[in-house]
C-alpha cells in the first residue's frame, strides 16, 4: 500500500474541511480525488505531504507515518501544490537544477524519468520561467516535482485553468509516469478527467461520496438516463422541470440528461408531453451514464 488514510478529520475554526475520510492507494496506482473547489482536496494533500496535522485519524505514505516520520516522507514524495508557480526569475534549467540540488540529486542522475517531458521544453531552457506559456510552465513544474525520483507523486489540481490541449498532454504524461512505477495521487475539478484514473474518490464538502474505479462508479447510478434535445434548450429545461414525473434534469453538452421517477418509463410519453408544450425537432434517446451524472446524484 502506497498511501493509507484512516478516519482523517481536519477542522479550521468552524469549518470542517475534511470529515472522517478514509481511502487507500495501491502501489503504482493513478488515484484521483474528484471534486469542486472547497471540497477539501488541498487539505488532504497538505496532510499527506506533512504540511498540516490532522485533528483525528492517521495516515501512512510510502510506509511512513505522516506525523512521526515526516522527514522520511519529505525525502520520498514529489509534490506540486495548486498555486505552484516556480521561480519566475530563474530560467527553465536553473529552476530544475535548483530543485535537483535541494533534493540532493542532479538533473543527469534522474534524467531518464523526466526525459519525455523535458525534451519538450528543452529548446527553451535558457528562457525565464515567467515567460513560458501555461502548458510549458506546467511541464516544467512536473519535471521539478519528479527530479528526485519520488515514490509517490502528489499533484494538486495540476490542470485547473489549463486549456483542453495541455490537459490532454498532461494526462498522457501521467500515464507514462505510472508505467515507471510511480504512485500518483491527483486531484481535479474536471469530471471528464476522472475516467483517466485507475480509481477515483468523489469528494464534496469534506466527505467522500464514493470510491471505486470509474467504470464501476457509473454502474452504481440508479436510473436510466436519456438524452433529450429540441431546438430551444432554455424552454426544454423549463418544460422538463414542470413535467410531473421528472427525477432530474441537467443540461449536458448539446443534450439535456433526463431521468424519470417511474420504473417503467416510456420515452414516448415524454415525446407526447413535449409536443404538447410546443417543442419541435424533439430527440429522445437512451445514453451512457457519466461520472458527472453519478457525482450530481450523490451530491444531491
Amino acid at each position: 500500500m502506497s498511501i493509507l488514510v484512516k478516519n482523517i478529520t481536519k477542522t479550521f475554526k468552524n469549518l470542517t474541511a475534511v470529515n472522517n475520510i478514509s481511502f487507500d492507494v495501491k502501489e503504482g496506482e493513478l488515484f484521483g480525488l474528484i471534486g469542486p473547489d472547497g471540497a477539501g482536496k488541498t487539505t488532504i494533500f497538505r496532510i499527506l505531504t506533512t504540511l498540516l496535522f490532522a485533528d483525528k485519524g492517521e495516515a501512512i505514505v510510502a510506509d511512513y507515518d505522516v506525523v512521526k516520520d515526516y522527514k522520511s516522507i519529505r525525502n520520498n514524495v514529489g509534490y506540486m501544490p495548486g498555486k505552484f508557480s516556480l521561480y519566475q526569475d530563474l530560467t527553465v534549467e536553473e529552476n530544475l537544477a535548483f530543485f535537483a540540488t535541494i533534493f540532493g540529486t542532479t538533473i543527469e542522475k534522474n534524467y531518464d524519468l523526466i526525459k519525455d517531458i523535458y525534451i519538450q521544453i528543452e529548446p527553451f531552457k535558457t528562457r525565464r520561467a515567467g515567460k513560458l506559456s501555461g502548458g510549458m510552465k506546467q511541464k516544467l513544474a512536473l519535471c521539478c516535482a519528479l527530479i528526485h525520483k519520488p515514490k509517490v507523486l502528489f499533484l494538486d489540481e495540476p490542470t485547473t485553468g489549463v486549456d483542453p490541449v495541455s490537459r490532454k498532454e498532461f494526462w498522457e504524461m501521467l500515464k507514462r509516469l505510472q508505467k515507471k512505477g510511480i504512485t500518483i495521487l491527483v486531484s481535479t475539478p474536471y469530471m471528464d478527467e476522472a475516467a483517466l484514473c485507475d480509481r477515483i474518490a468523489l469528494i464534496q464538502d469534506g466527505k467522500i461520496l464514493e470510491i471505486d474505479t470509474p467504470q464501476e462508479i457509473v454502474k452504481h447510478y440508479p436510473k436510466k438516463i436519456y438524452d433529450v434535445k429540441t431546438d430551444n434548450m432554455y424552454k426544454l429545461i423549463e418544460c422538463l422541470n414542470t413535467y410531473e414525473h421528472h427525477y432530474s434534469v441537467y443540461p449536458f453538452g448539446e443534450f439535456v440528461h433526463y431521468t424519470d421517477k417511474r420504473e417503467d418509463f416510456n420515452p414516448k410519453d415524454l415525446q407526447l408531453f413535449l409536443e404538447e408544450m410546443g417543442a419541435v425537432n424533439i430527440t429522445i434517446q437512451p445514453t451512457e451514464t457519466t461520472i458527472e451524472d453519478t457525482f450530481m446524484e450523490l451530491a444531491k
Binding site: P36, D37, M296, A299
Partner: peptide, 10 residues
C-alpha cells in the same frame, strides 16, 4: 464556472 461543482455549474 472554473472550479464550481457540477450542480451549481448547471
Amino acid at each position: 464556472t472554473g472550479g464550481v461543482d457540477p450542480i451549481t455549474r448547471r
